[in-house]
Computed example of a mutant assay.
Amino acid sequence: MGMSVTIDRAAEQDAEQILKLQYLCYQAEAELAGDYQIDALTQTADDLRAEMRAGLVLVARLGTEIVGSVRGTVDADGTASIGRLIVHPRMQRHGLGGRLLDRIEQRLAAEADTARYRLHSGQRGEGNLRLYRRLGYAPVATEHVSRHLKVITLEKIRVPQGRPGELAASA
């Protein structure tokens, strides 16, 4: 391709392109769940813009095309909730998901007093679960959302800077 992927904060004008990518990326999950009314497929541009104002939304760009995105917020107790990690299918399995996750962790920790990172994944998303485990996340809860879908909550404790190599997964 000759271009490198850059990761930066999303701008409000990116909302439409993020939603198109989100719609593409969540089709397989909706099919597995047998439910095409999942939030990721029904979210509006106005809803996404509100998320952008309330939290951190990052995008990965290849030239001018958005090929990945991730969102995060930090609550009052220092829990960073990370969600909607998406990578265009043609860009998957090249490390971009891991780069996006690492970057949002860094940015959330820099902007707020972050004690832990939390994310969710459907039980059928084995590739996603492998990525999260490889990056230090451990399952802490499982919720039966429907007859066909379980959602797994994973967490990772943030180790303060200055102690490299000591990332610890919560038990």
Rank of each mutant, 00 (worst) to 15 (best):
T44F: 03
I38T: 08
A60L: 13
A28Q: 14
L41I: 06
I38E: 08
D35R: 00
Q43H: 05
A50I: 11
A28L: 07
A33V: 02
G34N: 06
G63F: 12
R49T: 10
D46F: 05
D35H: 01
R53F: 00
L62Y: 13
A60D: 04
D35V: 00
A30R: 04
L32R: 09
L32F: 11
A40G: 11
G55W: 02
I38P: 05
Q43A: 15
D47G: 05
A33K: 01
L32A: 10
D46H: 08
R49A: 03
V57G: 01
T42I: 15
L56Q: 03
A30K: 03
L56S: 06
T42M: 11
G34S: 08
V59A: 02
A40K: 09
R49Q: 15
D47A: 12
L62D: 11
A60G: 01
L56G: 01
Q43T: 09
D39N: 12
V59S: 00
A30C: 13
L58N: 01
E31C: 03
A28Y: 09
G55A: 14
E65A: 13
A45Y: 01
T44W: 05
E51N: 15
E31T: 11
L48T: 08
T64Y: 09
G63C: 07
I38D: 09
R61V: 10
G55P: 00
D35N: 15
D35C: 02
L62P: 00
T64C: 07
A40W: 05
V57L: 06
G63I: 10
L58A: 03
E31W: 02
L58K: 00
Y36G: 02
L48A: 07
A33D: 08
T42R: 12
Y36R: 02
V59M: 06
I38F: 09
A33P: 01
A60H: 02
Q43K: 14
L58P: 10
A30M: 07
D47R: 09
A30L: 05
D35I: 00
Y36V: 00
E29A: 14
A40P: 04
L56E: 14
V57Y: 00
Q37D: 15
L56C: 12
M52P: 11
L32H: 10
A54G: 08
L58C: 03
G63E: 11
E65D: 12
A28H: 11
L58R: 00
V57M: 03
D39A: 15
T44D: 06
D47S: 14
T42H: 07
A45M: 05
R53M: 03
A33S: 14
T44V: 11
T42F: 08
V59T: 05
Q43D: 04
R53E: 05
A33L: 04
A60E: 09
G55D: 03
D35A: 01
V57F: 01
G55M: 13
E65M: 04
E51R: 15
E29P: 09
A33G: 04
T44L: 06
A30I: 04
G55I: 13
Y36H: 14
T42P: 05
A45I: 04
D46G: 13
A30D: 09
G55Y: 02
E31N: 09
V59K: 01
T44Q: 06
M52T: 14
L62I: 02
G55T: 05
A60R: 02
I38Y: 13
M52F: 10
D35M: 01
D47C: 06
L58G: 01
A50D: 14
R61W: 11
M52R: 03
G55S: 10
T42Y: 07
